[in-house]
Design a protein around this nucleic acid. Sequence first.
DNA 1: TCGGGTATGTTGCCGTTGTCAACATTGGGA
DNA 2: TCCCAATGTTGACAACGGCAACATACCCGA
Lengths: 207, 207
Amino acid sequence: MSTSNAKTSVRSYHHGDLRAELIRSAQVLLEREGVTKLSLRAAARLAGVSQTAPYRHFTDKAALLAAVAAVGFRGLAAAMRRGAARAGSAEKRMLEIGSAYLAFAVENSAVFRLMFGSEIPDKAAHPELRWAAEDAFAVLAGEMPAGPDGSDAAIAAWSFVHGLATLLIDGQIRSEMSAGAPFDPVALTRRFGRFLDFSKARVGRQT
Amino acid sequence: MSTSNAKTSVRSYHHGDLRAELIRSAQVLLEREGVTKLSLRAAARLAGVSQTAPYRHFTDKAALLAAVAAVGFRGLAAAMRRGAARAGSAEKRMLEIGSAYLAFAVENSAVFRLMFGSEIPDKAAHPELRWAAEDAFAVLAGEMPAGPDGSDAAIAAWSFVHGLATLLIDGQIRSEMSAGAPFDPVALTRRFGRFLDFSKARVGRQT
DNA sequence: TCGGGTATGTTGCCGTTGTCAACATTGGGA
DNA sequence: TCCCAATGTTGACAACGGCAACATACCCGA
């Protein structure tokens, strides 16, 4: 928003990089109003462009949403990688990755819901989105030993942290937590993650 | 559909139980076309009633969706209870409950997505929905020891199985599974659930 | 330099949806 | 029996996704 290019005010017909600006507009609307108020027309309005201009860059409303979701996955992956880099031991890295996942979900809940919800029908039809999602998963899987056991452990870890994030932003387990606490993702991950045990997957091989 | 009551054809102005019929119509549309094609008007059409008749029974489109989701939560709770009743030991009960959760999500994926998605904004505004959700969670929590540790363990278990279900119906981990297998929820729950360890929560107390 | 083709953006339009206001019908209680 | 409140209908409005036809401007080759 503070990075708005000066061109915006003086452009005469062509925009310059409307595609990127539409994605940004969609993100703004998503954060501000929620996914129900995010329409192609609203994004176009916010970008200062006619209501059908987006169709020159996205075949569909779903295509715009998929692009926004893909950006979200890249952000999630980056956050997890930052978390992993912060810690040394394998134990601590898993903890950091999990809490990065949780923090991302809570701080970007609208995008997170878009990434995993059903607003984008047939996500498989958007390769960019699939790649971004697979790359995010790869961060988690990279912490696990190779082989089928490690793969299963990665899925279990992902399932756990993903479920926890989902239920959290849905308010489904808010009452169960220490209400009033200011959301400490590391503490939450440690508190609930202590029921996970990946030692079985680790004995077979090493990192 | 085969259970259409005979009254439908001879009703003259008042329907009899339009509220229930609208919920049924919405379920049918949801299963048949997905959540994107589920509109108030379509439900009204399917119920053979004018497009604004639903507003006599639901304040909102969200209210109809919430009612459908609440029915879903009741079905999920019932499925888990059936699973729990099928097994004796605590271990086996957890396994059955988890696989019932998974089976429900896969076999009723559209309703499941509605239950946990963002199509219903502000779910807290629908008490019936909240009660149904809390009752479903109570099935899981009932398997855990009382006290804070047991509560945490219940949340961890719920998070795990919920995340697994979500990622499954999203196709996000399909490639990781033995492709082509005909979906065995019990096997899946056992395979990934082996990384969970609730013995720490059990030592404090008993069932 | 210039002319045209193509990428990009606009205008006008259509069918559908959620929702409101005003009106119609009916069944059940006084 | 009669009337009122519950229930259902008609008509309308704005917003939406998406199509078709048209306008503009940038770029590339002659």
